[in-house]
């Protein structure tokens, strides 16, 4: 059975940079506190006219341009997001329309911050099942729409952006570039991160999420390595959901990956939920920090609580 591999990546961030000092004008907080607790120095916030689909399409357009394929080659578009404003049409159809992709399979997936790895898993499965040959997998979020700008515990964290990958089927005898997904959820902790109601705002139990993330996730991430047949020492980069630098450091410490570059895009991008993994990965690849073909561990986690991760070969 053939598998899939990532051919190329692309990302998009809104042009407006919002510093911690600007946030401190809205709520009682300060730059030092935010840097110390969350690790964020600045974040990007979209204009009110800029939609999740606009950002998703911009990231996907770059990924497609980097792939050597054209819109006509794409037969599946999957978008991971929890902040789409509309129930229908979904973001995937809007992206396909903007990029001139005709008649693709198109669906959105919502597992909050773990979304990209879930989407990557389902698309890998679709390709393995023969339902797709070339697919776009996108994580895109506009958290600024659901942030309560009077709540200092959350409004310092979240931001907007998008990242995208082009996946293709591997040929006969060619090793798979996307490893088996390890995924799951913790339904009894569903209340730990919420974007609930008709006019929703994001709320979270920070301590509860921090504890779960720093204690439960490293063994699951190592399971993804094991399922891919890659030893932790071989991992060239670790790209976790960009939730909080202290969570990232806490997980990384437990992984035992001495040679891995650990993605810290949160410092300049904030927490962009499902967009954070592809955004950080795309930037690592663009800066050539990871050699082509090297194994990279992706791991998303968040609202649900859900998690998913896999080892991919760097394009």
């Amino acid at each position: 059975m053939s598998g899939s591999r990532i051919v190329s990546l692309g990302h998009y961030q809104p042009s407006r940079v919002v510093t911690n000092d600007e946030i401190a004008q809205l709520v009682s907080t300060n730059d030092e506190w935010i840097r110390d607790r969350v690790g964020i120095v600045s974040r990007r916030i979209a204009e009110s006219s800029e939609s999740v689909a606009d950002m998703a399409a911009a990231a996907a357009d770059k990924a497609l341009a980097n792939s050597g394929l054209t819109a006509a080659d794409i037969d599946l578009v999957v978008v991971a997001t929890c902040t789409a404003a509309d129930r229908s049409p979904n973001v995937a159809c809007r992206v396909a329309g903007k990029l001139g992709i005709t008649a693709p399979g198109a669906y959105d997936i919502n597992t909050a911050c773990s979304g990209f790895a879930y989407a990557l898993g389902t698309v890998d499965h679709a390709i393995r099942a023969g339902a797709s040959r070339n697919a776009l997998v996108i994580g895109a979020e506009k958290l600024s729409d659901v942030v309560d700008w009077t709540d200092r515990t959350t409004c310092i964290i979240f931001a907007d952006g998008a990242g995208a990958a082009v996946l293709t089927a591997t040929g006969e005898g060619e090793p798979a570039g996307v490893g088996p997904v390890v995924w799951g959820s913790v339904p009894e902790k569903s209340d730990a991160v919420r974007i609930e109601g008709w006019r929703p705002y994001v709320r979270q139990e920070g301590q509860s999420v921090f504890r779960w993330a720093t204690t439960s996730l490293a063994p699951l991430a190592l399971q993804a390595c094991e399922r891919a047949g890659v030893a932790p020492e071989e991992i060239a980069a670790f790209v976790p959901h960009q939730a909080n630098t202290r969570i990232i450091d806490g997980i990384a410490r437990r992984l035992g990956m001495p040679h891995a570059v650990v993605a810290k895009d949160i410092v300049e991008s904030g927490n962009t939920s499902a967009a954070s993994v592809p955004l950080a990965l795309s930037k690592l690849v663009e800066r050539r920090e990871v050699p082509s073909g090297a194994p990279v561990l992706l791991f998303g986690f968040g609202g649900g609580l859900t998690y998913a991760g896999q080892v991919v070969r760097c394009p």
């Binding site: 607790r37 920070g206 301590q207 921090f210 504890r211 720093t214 202290r246």
Partner: peptide
């Protein structure tokens, strides 16, 4: 000890 360090202490 901030709220996140407190979690690490508890663990």
């Amino acid at each position: 000890v901030d709220s996140l360090s407190m979690v690490e202490v508890v663990v």
